[in-house]
């Protein structure tokens, strides 16, 4: 059975002093999946990835990567995976092609730099230096660098952070192509839309613990059915901050407690046709001045906020 998984993480614990960055985390990544590891800042995502990559040792727990034991077969694992770190740069005085051939030289199996640059659309910049690239190009290059050994598993830590929307779309297109070539991908991101669109399965973690695991659809459906068929996510923008009493009144119309932040308030409504009417009536009666009302289907972002709040 173990052979069916690209990565298995079992009861992983990593402490820094008194703080447990990873606290009994277990999940599994199937071969050929794009697996999203989601969680707020400081949830333990990067620590978990670094343990899988062999950069850190867990205090307890077990990791199996591509059927190999994380504790004993670190070098073999490193040879067969590709890693894009959150913030790493490359040798300043080497060209893109030179960096790729130097890195490739560290692996028993390697792809030619030209092919890698072609893949990420940087073939015409082979002789440039990394610092001459734009932010989007730099991330695409880092992705190419993580593919030098034609890895079976690629780990991408926030590959789209800080990019403009177009660059983000390009990057995710590339991530999907990497999977099409047969690799398994583990990726972290703070953009829920991207995760919902591109990930086959997800794990949402916080404080080093697993909160939910499954496909984006499953996670959304789970929250919807847990709430007796919540159908809509509603976002209210009010003229001024809501008072506690107003929040209570509105909350009675919603499924689960509303989340208020300044002038905006997020809540979910049941699919019952009267639910929205009730909400608007209650709002009017308690003197809430609505400036904007947004009704959308429940998204992964709603799931994420619901799971990680408080």
């Amino acid at each position: 059975m173990a052979g069916d998984y690209a990565v298995q993480v079992v009861e992983l614990v990593k402490r820094y002093g008194d703080v447990a960055a990873v606290d009994g985390l277990s999940f599994a990544v199937g071969r050929g999946e794009i697996f999203g590891l989601l969680g707020p800042n400081g949830a333990g995502k990067t620590t978990t990835l670094e343990i899988i990559e062999g950069l850190q040792r867990p205090d307890s727990g077990r990791v199996r990567v591509l059927g190999l034991d994380g504790a004993a077969q670190g070098r073999e694992i490193k040879a067969r995976i590709g890693v894009m770190l959150q913030a790493s740069s490359y040798y300043e005085y080497l060209s893109l092609a030179e960096v790729l051939s130097l890195l490739g030289g560290f692996y028993p199996r390697r792809l030619p730099p030209g092919e890698l640059l072609e893949l990420v659309g940087l073939a015409d910049k082979a002789r440039r230096r990394v610092r001459q690239l734009s932010g989007g190009e730099r991330q695409r290059f880092a992705l190419a660098a993580s593919l030098v050994n034609d890895p079976e598993l690629v780990i991408l830590d926030e590959p789209s952070a800080g990019l403009d929307p177009l660059s983000r779309r390009e990057l995710w297109g590339l991530v999907r192509r990497v999977r099409e070539r047969g690799a398994t991908v583990i990726v972290t991101t703070h953009y829920m839309e991207e995760a919902e669109e591109s990930c086959d399965r997800l794990a949402i973690i916080n404080h080093g613990r697993l909160l939910a695991e499954g496909s984006p659809r499953e996670l959304i459906n789970r929250i919807v059915s847990a709430e007796g068929g919540a159908a809509y996510a509603v976002k209210l923008v009010t003229a001024g901050p809501l008072t506690g009493a107003q929040l209570d009144v509105l909350g009675r119309c919603a499924i689960a407690a509303p989340i208020a932040d300044g002038n905006t308030c997020l809540m979910r409504l049941s699919s019952h046709p009267a639910a929205l009417q009730d909400l608007l009536d209650e709002a009017g009666r308690s003197g809430v001045v609505l400036e904007q009302l947004e009704i959308t289907p429940v998204t992964l972002e709603d799931v994420f906020i619901e799971l990680t709040r408080g």
Binding site: G54, L55, K78, L85, F106
Partner: peptide, 17 residues
Amino acid sequence: SVYRNQAVLKRLLVTPL
């Protein structure tokens, strides 16, 4: 020091070198 600040060392550590 430059390598460390720019995480070049870390990047090398994830390779089997």
